[in-house]
């Protein structure tokens, strides 16, 4: 017989009756996310080797070529996408769990207390502006697709290299990530109560249905696109620095 008395009601941090390794997922997620963020910061700070031939690193797109800025241009360029991700409904879940341990995992006790304010107080209340960051990053998509076109330009003639495919994959992943956004889904049609009430609403319902299909995979696209952004940058960086040669496929 185990006596628990009051402990059942007021457990200490981390207390749970779960038998599975509940701590693995948040730990792994936290480490991978931190690695990706660290790499992106490092790469954005380099200010070199982001452009070679028709290839442009997505961390530096759209390309700004002014030299009077105190920081590398990538920092200005990256600010909206970084904030888009920071306020993303998926990443919020990930970092609240992994970094704030609020909660560390389901049905695992966290640091208790009634001072919790959730997303009602600064700074987290700003998460409510996620839709504006969607609008701004949405404007990046034409540039990213034009990067794909540029990546088929090998000294004036059409071609496809491994880098072309990597950049295409990355742009596709970013596009899917954008259109699977919860705020986008709301604005596309989720804010309607009656989908069938007009021809315009019916069209919005069709769009909303597709956004809903993508939205179910928002987490997948969030991770995939972060990997491809860093991966595409790394690839361009390695080619530009001469560490590897880009195999030409066509």
């Amino acid at each position: 017989m185990m006596v628990v008395s009051g402990e059942l009601r007021r457990p200490r941090f981390g207390a749970t009756e779960r038998r599975d390794a509940w701590w693995v997922a948040p730990l792994l997620q936290g480490l991978v996310l931190a690695s990706l963020i660290a790499y992106a910061n490092w790469a954005a700070f380099q200010g070199t080797n982001y452009h070679v031939g028709g290839y442009l690193s997505p961390l530096y797109s759209p390309l700004i070529t002014v030299d009077w800025l105190p920081v590398p241009p990538s920092f200005i360029i990256l600010l909206p996408p970084v904030l888009f991700r920071a306020t993303c409904y998926y990443y919020r879940k990930a970092y609240y769990r992994s970094y704030f341990l609020d909660p560390p995992a389901c049905a695992v006790a966290e640091i208790r207390g009634t001072s919790y304010r959730g997303e009602t107080a600064f700074p987290f209340v700003l998460q409510n502006l996620h839709r504006y960051l969607f609008f701004i990053t949405f404007l990046y998509l034409p540039f990213l697709w034009s990067d794909v076109v540029h990546a088929t330009n090998f000294g004036g003639s059409f071609g496809i290299g491994v880098g072309t495919l990597i950049i295409l994959l990355n742009t596709s992943a970013l596009t899917l990530y954008s259109f699977s956004c919860h705020s986008a889904r709301h604005l596309i049609g989720g804010n309607l109560d009656c989908f069938s009430c007009s021809a315009f609403n019916r069209a919005r319902h069709a769009a909303w249905s597709r956004a809903s299909v993508l939205n179910e995979r928002h987490m997948l696209f969030a991770w995939l696109s972060f990997f491809t952004v860093c991966g595409a940058d790394l690839y361009v960086r390695l080619v530009a620095s001469g560490a590897i040669v880009d195999p030409r496929l066509l």
Binding site: R117, G118, E119, T120, E216, H218
Partner: peptide
């Protein structure tokens, strides 16, 4: 606003309602 969308509700729902999303 107190909900920080950490999705445990969705994970435990026996009716598989996608509560959070």
């Amino acid at each position: 606003g107190l909900c920080n969308i950490t999705k445990c509700c969705t994970e435990v729902c026996p009716e598989s309602i996608r509560i959070t999303d």
